[in-house]
Nucleic acid binder design. Sequence first.
DNA 1: AAGGAGATCAACCGCCGTATT
DNA 2: AAATACGGCGGTTGATCTCCT
Length: 342
Amino acid sequence: MGRSPCCEKEAGLKKGPWTPEEDQKLLAYIEQHGHGCWRSLPTKAGLRRCGKSCRLRWTNYLRPDIKRGKFTLQEEQTIIQLHALLGNRWSAIATHLPKRTDNEIKNYWNTHLKKRLARMGIDPVTHKPRVDADADVAAGGGAAGGGARSRAAAHLSHTAQWESARLEAEARLAREAKLRALASPPPATAALSGVDSPTSTLSFSESALFGAGSAAPDIHGAARAAAVQAVQSSYGEACQEHHFGGATAETSFAGAGTLAGVLLDCSVTGADQRFAERTEACSGELQGEDDDDKGYWNSILNMVNSSMSSSSSSLTSEVVTDTEMFLPATAAAAASATPVEF
DNA sequence: AAGGAGATCAACCGCCGTATT
DNA sequence: AAATACGGCGGTTGATCTCCT
């Protein structure tokens, strides 16, 4: 593990900013041959760069499906939501922002959003109002507050576990899709078509299939089913190791899956009625959760909702707007707190 | 107009997980 | 089972840009 940097092996490799000529070479080579093995690509393409540098340049800049320029309000909202859920897992966040790279999102978070949240008095790490933390400190970190926090942390931990399981399944799905693609080579023009999500192990279209289960071509049917099964079993195991109020692994999966599933469904395909069904199906699963959890998610949603209400966006179907999407049924009722100025 | 400070972002670095040998 | 190769990820850096004095 921890092998040495690829660039160490060959001296004289160029570093630093790419020139237009280098870009052209890389672009031309990939368009013609696909990237294949990154390590051998620079030699074949006539570039004095290491493979890693080429891969980075391609994924972060040259790919034809990358959207550049200012982030929209909706994108900002999505990033904030997903960061609250996933933390600094930029590639996972990028999965839900088509045409944006993890590097770009990371940069935008560090240079814009983090500061903005901080200005609003919200801790960009915990996504909680700083006042809470102060109050807890002032109260000497009492057992009640600490307990609530740990429960909230446990809730988040479940979410993260589910997401991890999902990402694992995505990776498996992507590998299987790749194998299928190799088995039946695409036309030359398709060399660039399998990259419709900048950094995800799963392409955006595949995410959509996976999340929405909609009109998926049968070629992916088995893989999708396998992926779903993998998520279910992974999450089931996670549930057995932890709590979830005595619910079975399957129902726990449904409950927690709602949260991440909503993100997936809504960001990829727009809200659909399956979501409502699942919300109904799992309502009450998380009723043991504490008011702190409600407040936590409320604060995020309020922030998001307030900015959304001031915009003319039609994206309300694309990002989470309904408290029930995020919260356990019991928490939804408490979602009428004053919106935070964004 | 000059230059200093802060902001931005492309690119690098080092580590990790997985596949292959 | 161990070693190695590879792709991917998140954190960090440094060059460049923009704004302010």
